[in-house]
């Protein structure tokens, strides 16, 4: 079952399967470790549900909802 990163709830994980983002944004995210096949975890939302804190590789990255909705995932629960 595929979903997007912004649809996860706090603490849920997924494996990246693809992107629906402008190429430049996609490359920037990829260079930070958002690669197909990598596991990501939605750590938490900021108080107004935007931006989101995501755990990827051994780091925490904050991205906005708009970008998160362009990252397709396979749900891991």
């Amino acid at each position: 079952m595929t979903t997007t990163l912004d649809k996860l709830t706090e603490g849920q994980k997924g494996v990246i399967v693809g992107f629906d983002l402008p190429l430049e944004t996609q490359i920037r995210l990829m260079e930070l470790g958002f690669l197909e096949g990598h596991e990501v975890k939605l750590v938490r939302f900021a108080p107004l549900k935007d931006p989101l804190e995501v755990a990827v590789l051994n780091s925490r990255i904050s991205i906005r909802r708009a970008e998160a909705s362009g990252i397709r995932l396979r749900h891991l629960g």
């Binding site: 930070l32 931006p51 925490r60 904050s62």
Partner: peptide
């Protein structure tokens, strides 16, 4: 430009 920020 997307706001992408590492939380170190």
């Amino acid at each position: 430009t997307p706001f992408i920020l590492e939380l170190p």
